[in-house]
């Protein structure tokens, strides 16, 4: 059963097509990562799933409800830009947001206390939001989102601006909710986080779906054309090699994209310098993202779209 099903959805603002003929299925219980550059249509897609905005064409079914807001009470939404009433006290705010989802005050308070305790915020329950630190406010916003035990959790950049401790606390909370059966859709610019957490990944670029599938299937499609290597002496000679398409300096090693035979590269390197690391790998999600949306790929969108079709 799908928690979310988009079929041929298109949304445009004036002449600008924000989302173009998008079809997407998010299976129930999955953690689905939405990636894509800024302004590529992620937030528009999320808002359409919430029925905050309506598509020009196509259909959207969420938790079995088609084209109405009927399912919204069962969705928790954490928008990219946090929205809390500054003057309201934390507990009042949580109760209000829960009441808007149809949850009674008593239930909201009970559930709220549990979450406040979990995030070490119990002592702040009666403080106005404006007195909280940024990290605390962000946790409060997260609590407001999950307080109502939603079946579908939509998180737009949930980790932005969090310190490592809070980052971890939030990550564990999301994973736990997913284990309990909550479907999670989250958008992020943090590719390693997407790699670690997501069962499936969807990438949208300039309104078009360019990736959709498990990390494995996506990496499979991009092939094993990547070599991680470290050489003694000048790394600059890598770039001169005819088979090397691109070199990304990762600090401790270089990530190289090859068009030819890796063995030939190894042989030619060994002949000229000492090779300390040579690993044939699949491209990271970060690399794939840059290949699709990086400056050199901007004019090759069509190719990416074709690749996405293969993956799907």
């Amino acid at each position: 059963m799908d928690a979310v099903r988009l079929t041929n959805v298109t949304k445009s603002y004036g002449d600008h097509i924000a989302v173009n003929d998008l079809s997407l299925r998010v299976p129930a219980g999955a953690i689905y990562g939405f990636i894509g550059p800024n302004g590529s249509g992620k937030t528009t897609t999320l808002r359409m799933i919430l029925h905050i905005i309506h598509p020009d064409s196509g259909s959207i079914e969420v938790l079995g409800e088609a084209a109405t807001r009927a399912a919204n009470d069962r969705i928790g939404y954490l928008p990219e830009e946090r929205g809390l009433y500054k003057k309201m006290k934390v507990r009042d705010l949580l109760t209000y947001y829960a009441a808007l989802k149809g949850v009674s005050g008593a239930d909201a308070r009970r559930e709220g206390e549990t979450w406040l305790e979990r995030f070490d915020l119990t002592g702040n329950a009666t403080r106005p939001v404006e007195t909280l630190s940024k990290g605390m406010a962000q946790k409060v916003q997260f609590i407001a989102t999950v307080l109502t035990r939603p079946e579908l959790l939509i998180l737009d950049e949930p980790f932005a601006g969090l310190d490592p401790v809070n980052h971890d606390a939030l990550r564990l909370a999301i994973l736990e909710l997913a284990r309990q059966g909550t479907t999670v859709i989250f958008s992020t610019h943090d590719m390693s986080m997407a790699e670690k957490m997501c069962d499936r990944i969807f990438m949208i670029f300039k309104g078009d779906k360019v990736l959709d599938g498990t990390l494995d299937s996506i990496q499979e499609a991009y092939g094993a054309d990547t070599v991680r290597l470290r050489v003694g002496g000048d790394a600059g000679l890598l770039a001169e090699h005819p088979a090397v398409e691109r070199v990304t300096d990762m600090g401790h090693y270089q990530e190289v994209r090859l068009s030819g035979d890796p063995q030939a590269l190894l042989q030619s390197l060994v002949a000229r310098t000492s090779v300390q690391l040579f690993e044939i790998a699949r491209p990271s999600l970060n690399e794939i993202f840059v290949r699709i949306a990086g400056p050199e790929a901007q004019d090759a969108v069509a190719t990416s779209a074709a690749l996405a079709d293969q993956v799907a």
């Binding site: 919204n72 928008p79 830009e81 946090r82 929205g83 009433y85 500054k86 947001y97 808007l100």
Partner: peptide
């Protein structure tokens, strides 16, 4: 105020 502080988006995801 709700619009500038992005509260509106949370609200309209719950209430029409």
């Amino acid at each position: 105020e709700e619009k500038m502080q992005k509260i509106a988006e949370v609200l309209v995801s719950s209430v029409s």
